[in-house]
Amino acid sequence: MSLAEDARDAVRRRPFLLASLRAGVVNYTAAARFLTDDVDGDAESVATALRRFADSLPDYETAARTAHVSMESGLGETDDPDDALLVVGGTALAPGEGSLTGVVASGDADASALAHVLGRLDAAGVGVRAAGVADDAIVLAVERRDGPDTVRVVEDALDAVPESE
């Protein structure tokens, strides 16, 4: 594999760096140093490969998503997945069964929007206990006290979802 291919692969394994390259906010020398364990080459050569890769990428753009965001209190584990608001693996969460809060964004929601929402919630210090996306809806389970903040973050995040490469 060439140095340029190694650099592109290393960047694609780090979505934050790919987004930064697309946005044009990268110090290429610092990024090259960051990638030294994954890319065999001197920092200057790797930085050049990153510059060329960045030039080939589409610009970083966002689009607003139209979705209605609501909260469902008292979410908890249930044995009946038919009543569940969210099922992940063998865990089904239904209203009236516990102390979590469910946040539902219905409308223009997909896996890209979920990824962006999860990143924004992480940056806001909100721990997500479970999450899923299906049929144009995102469902998140958070601690009760985090419910209102989660709604605000989700609404704001959906106003500017990055478009895919």
Rank of each mutant, 00 (worst) to 15 (best):
I138H: 05
D159P: 00
V87G: 04
G96C: 10
S99D: 15
V139Q: 00
S99I: 11
E72A: 09
D108Y: 02
V117G: 09
R129Q: 14
D82P: 01
D79Y: 05
R145Q: 12
D159W: 00
V142K: 04
L121W: 04
G147V: 10
A134G: 08
L75T: 12
T150P: 01
I138A: 06
L140I: 12
V133P: 03
V126M: 03
T150Q: 03
A94P: 02
S112C: 06
A124V: 07
D136K: 11
A115K: 04
D83Y: 03
T101K: 01
D136Y: 11
E155Y: 04
L100C: 05
G89D: 14
G90R: 13
L140F: 08
L121C: 11
R120T: 12
L118H: 07
D122R: 14
T91Y: 01
V88C: 02
A113S: 11
E155V: 02
V103T: 07
A92C: 06
P81L: 10
D146Y: 06
L100P: 04
A137P: 02
P148L: 12
A157Y: 02
V117H: 08
G89S: 05
R144A: 15
L75S: 01
V133G: 04
A94E: 04
G147F: 03
T78K: 01
V142T: 14
R145K: 11
G96Q: 09
V104S: 08
G98D: 08
L93I: 09
G74M: 10
V128Q: 07
G127V: 15
G96N: 11
S73G: 09
V151S: 10
L121A: 12
P81C: 11
A115T: 13
D82A: 15
A113F: 03
T150S: 04
V117D: 11
R145E: 14
R129T: 15
P95F: 01
T91M: 06
A115Y: 01
R129L: 13
V133E: 15
A92R: 01
E143D: 15
S112V: 12
A113C: 05
I138W: 02
D108L: 06
G102K: 04
